[in-house]
Structure formats: structure tokens, C-alpha cells
Design a protein around this nucleic acid. Structure first.
Lengths: 248, 248
DNA sequence: AAGTGGTCTAGACCACCGA
DNA sequence: CGGTGGTCTAGACCACTTT
């Protein structure tokens, strides 16, 4: 039953509930979920409310809908023709390395031109900056520096510390799973092959000049607002980024 | 005014109209667009219809919305292209370089393990190998080595020679446009940052050790069969690869 | 206080799908 | 045919921002 407490929107509660049922396997991939009208009755909400929840879950790729047939639980990510970059933990484990993550620091910075443009905030606005170091067998393999608007940023930092306390390795990608109220819808990334400069060489503990993959990412919410501007640097010899996409 | 012709949904027509106004500059980046209630009156539709149009445009990144303030035209994205890797010619022209292409060679090779696996053909099958050099202002910037099954391969080589004769710069991406009977549907790519070895350094005319982007591509037809297995090497300082994709 | 977007209701008609 | 999702209306109240 949904809580009549209006501090959390009904459609959001319904989303969370369905998400949970999918994650726990109460709803299985390929299975039809109850129809919109059935959900209206079960949860005592109007159809538009149900539709908003289903539309957003479909947009996030957890459900797919077919006119005249019903709404179904989507196959897990890999089956989907979705473009996906290998996440941190699995990419290292597949090399037989034990991944871990260090928080190098978190601080308030003021937005420079690049960050301000990417996040659509005024120049010099306060941003939360979170820097992480990804390790494999205790050796540095990746460095992340991410900027967030203040409100989200503080939550991300808290989520990072919580993960760290539980000793769960993570990258900033993974932190979104811990903040159900922040729903990334889309991201843009640019990939560049660079040489390690002195600073990055020291952080990553490798000789200057070694090749690094530099990825610049902007993450957008479903309301179109950017929430994260991130620079990531990966040891070239430790990472490959795999992508499947439609041609043209 | 929206057409009462119901073959196209009203919210779709509203989306198209707003998209057009953004593209032509009638609505400028950062500018506030009319409020939801104003749009209701202007287009004679209900507020939910307006909201569906605005929500989707925001989700696509053309608009962003702020509670209590309004709906605004988003700053243009840093990468203009959608899920699309920057094609050869435009990426150089945007740097002010004049692009050209050389055919380094074409020959019949027998499939090694990697190529045979990627193209789903027996080991040692004959393949057509085409190697190209991409230049900017006569300086090498990219090297491509592509393998095709024999039939398609011969056509691709012919298409490459034809482009060369017309002095049109191209990469192997572009050659598919010349072969209407070959329809690539999907491709997988892996991106890797590497150091230029002696051989690649010589081909690309740069010092060994410089960073290169190494992209391995497999192109699939709409019938699911692979048609091309390609290794591309790009000077790290000359190329960035932009991608927009759904999150998760 | 006035205007904005965010949520929500209780209906309606349509187009598509399967039996 | 009955059930599904897709579109649409005409209201309502709320939370947030600016004046």
C-alpha cells in the first residue's frame, strides 16, 4: 500500500515499489506486469499517476511496453541493444584483480568555465567536488574527479562514504543506485587518448608519458538538467571500453 | 496552430513545433519559453498535453525545467551528433585541417583467430584486407586496417578506389554509403588508449610512445551477420570521440 | 500575492492485439 | 469481442520562486 504521506509523490512510491519487485525477482524478466487499470485499483491511484510511473521506468529501461499487449519487465542490461560502458568492478575482476576504491577528497569548489557550462550554472557557483581513486590489487588504475551541484553533491559524497564503510568498491556511476531520488536519464561522454602528465602519473603511480584514457562525462536527469560533470582517467593498459550501437 | 488531424498526436505536433523554433533560433538557448498555461491557450490543448510534450523535450535534452521559475531552452550540447562517432571528414575540418585519404594497400589475407572469430568464418578463410591512411593537411592522423569476407571486400575496395579517383576523403565508415546492397545495422566497438609502437609510429609519422586511440570495430548487417572487422588507430592529440547514450 | 512547474483525479475516446 | 496501452480533457491542490 502506498503511504498517503505526501512528502513522497505517489508515482515515485509506485516506481520504487516496482523497481524493488524487479530487483528481488518478484517480477521476472519478460514477465507481464499488471495492466495500468489493475495497478490503479491495487494502489488506489488514478491512471495518469500509474502512467507516469510506468513511462519513467520504461524510459529508464526497466520495462518495455507494447500497445494492445501489455507492459513487460525488460531483459537485464546485456541483452539490450543499449550502449553500455563496462562498469568498474566487473572490468577489473575479469582481469583477476581485486578492486577497491579510495576517496581522495571532497570539497567545495567554485565553478570554472567548463564546469559551469556543462552543469548550466553561473560561473563561480559553489559545486561539490569528489575525487576517487580506483585500485586493482591495491595498485591505482583509475582516477575520477566529479563535480555536482551542491545539494546532490553532498548526497553523493555521503553515499560514497557509506559504500567505503561497507568496503564495497564503486565508481561514481554506481553511486546513483544509492540515491533513488536522483534518476540519471542520459549522458554524454567524450573519449580521448592522452599521455600521463606529471600530476596524473604520480596519482596513478606510473611513469609520465604512459597512455591514459581520458573520459569526460556529463550526466543528465530526466528533467533535462545536468547533475554531474566528470573527468575520468584510466590506465590505458588496464581498460577497454566496449560499446554496442546502431550503425549510422 | 495544430492540425486537428488526429493522425499525428497533439503533443507530438507541439514537440515538433517547439523543436523547429529552437532549431531556427526563434527560441534561443537560455531563453524562457512560454509557461505551460500560456502554451495551453496558444495551442488550444490541455495542460497534460503540454506537459507531455515538454517532459519529453526535457528528457531529450532540448529543454530544462525549474520549479517555480519556468522552462528554458538548453545550451546546445557540446557534441552535435547523437549516438554517432565523429566521421572522418568533419572531425578534421572542424580543426581547420584539410582532410584526404590514401589507400595503403589491399590484399587477400587468411583469417587469423581474431578475425575468424569476429567475422564468424573458418580459420584461414580468405579475407580481403584494406588499409587506409587518413591525413590532415597531408600529415597522417589515422590508420585503418579492415578485413571483409571476400565478396563484400572486393566491392569495398572498388568503392574506395572510386572515392580516391574523385579525390573525396573517406574512412571505411563512409564506404557503406556507396554500397546500397550492404546495410550495416549495428556495430560493436572497443576503445583503448595505447602507446604508438615502432611500426605505427612510422606509419603515422610521429615519435614512438605517443598516445593513440585504438578502436576495434565489428560491423553487423541487419541479418545479424558480421561484415567487417577493423582496427583503427587515431592520433590521440587529433581526435575526440563523442557519444550520447541513455544512462544505466 | 502572483506565477511557475509538480502532482493528481476521474473521467473519455482511440488504436492495437488476441481469442 | 474485451483488454491493453496511447492520447486527451478540465479541472484541482501543492511547492517553489519572484515581486
Amino acid at each position: 500500500m502506498l503511504s498517503p504521506n505526501h512528502s513522497i509523490p505517489l508515482y515515485q512510491q509506485l516506481k520504487d515499489d516496482l523497481r524493488e519487485k524487479i530487483k528481488t525477482g518478484a517480477l521476472k524478466p519478460g514477465e507481464r506486469i499488471p495492466s495500468e487499470r489493475e495497478l490503479c485499483e491495487q494502489y488506489h491511484v488514478s491512471r495518469m499517476t500509474v502512467r507516469q510511473a510506468l513511462a519513467e521506468l520504461a524510459n529508464e529501461g526497466l520495462l518495455y511496453r507494447t500497445h494492445g499487449k501489455g507492459t513487460f519487465v525488460a531483459r537485464p542490461r546485456i541483452d539490450q541493444e543499449l550502449v553500455r560502458v563496462t562498469p568498474f568492478e566487473s572490468s577489473l575482476r575479469s582481469k583477476g584483480l581485486i578492486p577497491s576504491t579510495k576517496i581522495l577528497g571532497s570539497k567545495i569548489v567554485s565553478a570554472d568555465y567548463e564546469a559551469a557550462t556543462a552543469l548550466a550554472v553561473p560561473l563561480l557557483s559553489p559545486l561539490v567536488n569528489l575525487t576517487l581513486l580506483g585500485l586493482g590489487n591495491e595498485q591505482p588504475v583509475a582516477y575520477y574527479s566529479a563535480c555536482f551541484p551542491e545539494d546532490t553533491g553532498h548526497k553523493m559524497v555521503a553515499a560514497a562514504r557509506a559504500r567505503l564503510a561497507r568496503k564495497v568498491p564503486f565508481s561514481t556511476y554506481d553511486l546513483y543506485d544509492d540515491l533513488p531520488e536522483v534518476n540519471p536519464a542520459r549522458l554524454t561522454q567524450s573519449f580521448e587518448a592522452i599521455s600521463a602528465g606529471a600530476e596524473l602519473a604520480e596519482i596513478l603511480d606510473l611513469p609520465p608519458g604512459k597512455p591514459l584514457m581520458h573520459i569526460t562525462t556529463v550526466v543528465y536527469l530526466d528533467n533535462g538538467r545536468p547533475v554531474e560533470y566528470r573527468h575520468s582517467y584510466y590506465r590505458g593498459d588496464m581498460y577497454r571500453f566496449h560499446i554496442t550501437r546502431p550503425a549510422r
